[in-house]
Amino acid sequence: MASLSRESILNIFLTLAMVALPFVATAIDEPFYITLATRVAILGLAGVGLNLALGTGGLVSFGHAAFFGVGGYAAGILASHALNYTPIMESPFLIEGTNQMLIIWLVAIIASGIVAYLIGLLSLRTSGVYFIMITLAFAQMLYYFAISWPAYGGEDGLSIYVRNAFLGVNTLAPHGFYFICLGLLFGGIFLSATLKNSRFGAALQSARQNEERLSAVGVRPFNIKLTAFVISGMMTGLAGALFADLNRFVSPSMLSWHMSGEIMILVILGGVGRLYGPLAGAIIYILFEFIFGGMTEHWQFFLGLVLLGVVLFARGGVIGLIAGRARHD
C-alpha cells in the first residue's frame, strides 16, 4: 500500500474529529458544541458545493447564496404548509406541504438545480470579473424578490416551529440532526472526490486551464462548466435546506450577498480546490464566530485579518499550509 500523503492524514483526522465531537461534547456536558458543529457541517457542505465550481472549475461564483437560500426556502415553505395543514397549491392539482426531510431535500436539490441551470445558462457566457458580477446580480435579484414577497414572510422571514422528520431519527435531539448533516457533508465530499477523479473532472479542470484546447479535443467547455455549476448549486441548495432546519427559520438574509461572501470566505480559508478545504474553513469560521463573537460584535475584523494572512501568505489555505501543495495521486 502506498504511504498516505499528509493531506490524506489530515483529512482522516478531520473526519474522525467530526465524528467524535458530539461524544466529547456530551462527556464534558456542553451540548451547545454539537449545535456549533452542526453549523460547521452545514456550512462545510455549502462550501463543498461552491468548491466544485470555484476550485475545480475556476468559476468564481459570488452568487451561491441564491442556491443556499432557494434550498432554505424550499424547506421553509414545505414545512410551514405541513404545519398549518394548508396545501401549497390546489389547482390544477393538489400539492401538500411535508415535514419529511427526504422529500424536502429532494425538492431543495431540484429547485436549486433549476435556478443554477438558469443562472448558469446566462452567466457562463461571461468570464472573469463579469461572471462574478452577474452571479452576484442574480443572487441579489432573488434576495429582493424574497423581501418583497409577503406570502412567505417577506422581510421577516418564515419560521419552522418543529424541526422536520427524518425516518426514525429524533431530529430534535442535537445528536440525531448532527449526524444527518455530517452524513450529508461526507456524502458531498465523496461526490466531489468522485467527480474530480472522473473524466468529467479532468475535462472541468481542462476548461479552467484552457477552453480552446478543450474544444480542440471535441468537448464543449460550456456544457462541462454548466453541469459543474448545476451540481455545485444543488449541493449548496441542500445545505440551505439543512440550515433552515437547524435554525428553524428562513429569511431573505440566506439569499443576501453576505451569505455568498461567507461561503466563499470559508472555501478560501480552508483551501480552494482542496477536498477538505471547505470543512477546515467552516471549522475556523465557526470557531472565530464563537470565540471572538463572544468578546466583541466586531469579530469579523479578526476574521478579515486571518483572511488577509491566508491570501497573502498561504494561498493553499489552511489545508495547503499544513499539507503542502496539492498532489496528484
Binding site: 473524466r199 479532468a202 475535462a203 479542470q205 481542462s206 486551464q209 478543450l214 471535441g218 468537448v219 496528484h328
Partner: peptide, 10 residues
C-alpha cells in the same frame, strides 16, 4: 493534469 488525465479527458 496528469498524463493519464490529459488522455482520458479527450
Amino acid at each position: 493534469l496528469t498524463v493519464e488525465e490529459n488522455l482520458l479527458a479527450a
